[in-house]
């Protein structure tokens, strides 16, 4: 289960002059779920299309299950066809066909039996609507159908582009439980979404992308550490304690304590044994805060670049000068 199911290596892609993806690299192991996060137009859907082989990247390569990426006809390193499951964003299928006919059509194209379709329709709670034409379906019903379509063939690699858009809480819970079951069989899942709190409990890793560049990649714990965001502790009467205790006063801000993971033991010991406080809540930074942190960071660095072009150019030349010509550098200094 420790093999890479998807491996993206230094992928760069342009649409005309526009750089949609810049030196993107990452890997997803079998049986793992990766969240693909980023602002609108960050390049998430483009990346998914590249993994599917629908778009050929200008530079870089993608390998699926250890074999070269030939799109839908990819073979794994063992020479077995790679089964792909894909849910495109805003898919609306064929208006005139019924839900059941649509699933039968896609099942037939994948060589999946009608019995499997019947089970899926049942599981997805679409039984009552299976004989109705698709144009009578609500958005969430279409989305359920789309997800059922994606997992028809029990895929090795499942790519979901905003799967929970329009789903009610119950349905999205069901979707993630289905993903969990597929993971048990070794399926690698990449989910692109904007609903961070919804996906947070279900992921192994997350990749944050902005303007086609990778900002951060790792497990939730790694991302937390990378972001340097503090743990938040709230408790009654904290203001009074902070005045008395210098350790706490240093960490005290806006009616809460903020500290790093290494300090947690010390703080908790102080509160419990010294002051007898046992009722407190500890909040680790969630995916949403981590996301906001990295986005703000990239925003400010972009702004800094944009606001001070001359300064930037200057510092670059002086750096170059120092690197390549010690005399010139000395004169400058």
């Amino acid at each position: 289960m420790e093999n890479n199911a998807v491996c993206v290596n230094e992928v760069t892609h342009h649409f005309g002059d526009f750089t949609a993806l810049k030196q993107m690299s990452f890997a997803v192991k079998q049986g793992q779920t990766m969240a693909l996060l980023g602002h609108n137009g960050a390049g998430k859907s483009t990346l998914i299309k590249i993994i599917l082989g629908l778009i050929k990247p200008d530079i870089g390569e993608v390998s699926l299950m250890g074999g070269a990426n030939e799109g839908s006809s990819s073979m794994s390193s063992q020479g077995v066809p790679v089964r792909l499951g894909y849910l495109p964003e805003n898919v609306s299928f064929y208006d005139k066909l019924t839900g059941e006919e649509i699933l039968h059509y896609f099942a037939a194209l994948k060589g999946v039996s009608k019995a499997k379709v019947a089970t899926l329709i049942e599981e997805f709670g679409l039984d009552y609507a299976k004989d109705r034409q698709l144009k009578t379906y609500s958005k969430g019903m279409k989305q359920r159908l789309g997800f059922a379509q994606a997992i028809l063939s029990e895929p090795d690699i499942l790519l979901l582009d905003e799967p929970t858009v329009g789903l009610d809480p119950h349905a999205s819970q069901f979707l993630y439980s289905k993903i969990a079951a597929l993971k048990q069989t070794g399926c690698a899942v990449i989910v692109c979404t904007h609903e961070l709190s919804l996906i947070e409990p279900h992921i192994d890793t997350a990749m944050i992308v902005a303007k086609g560049e990778r900002l951060a990649l790792g497990s939730l714990a790694q991302l937390r550490a990378l972001s340097g965001l503090k743990i938040q502790l709230k408790c009654e009467g904290l203001a009074d304690l902070a005045e008395k205790e210098p350790l706490l006063s240093r960490l005290y801000r806006h009616d809460a304590l903020y500290f790093d993971r290494e300090q947690q033991d010390q703080v908790v010991r102080c509160l419990t044994s010294q002051y007898g406080k046992f009722g407190f809540s500890i909040m680790e930074p969630g995916l949403a805060e981590i996301y906001r942190h990295f986005m703000a960071e990239s925003e400010s660095s972009h702004q800094a670049l944009a606001l001070t072009p001359s300064l930037n150019a200057q510092s670059k030349t002086s750096l170059k000068a120092r690197l390549f010509s010690p005399f010139f550098g000395m004169k400058n200094v």
């Binding site: 006809s73 894909y86 896609f106």
Partner: peptide, 14 residues
């Protein structure tokens, strides 16, 4: 427009 072209192309079809 309905997104099914992308889907079909992700299937094992030429």
């Amino acid at each position: 427009e309905s997104g099914t072209l992308l889907l079909l192309l992700s299937y094992p079809l030429t």
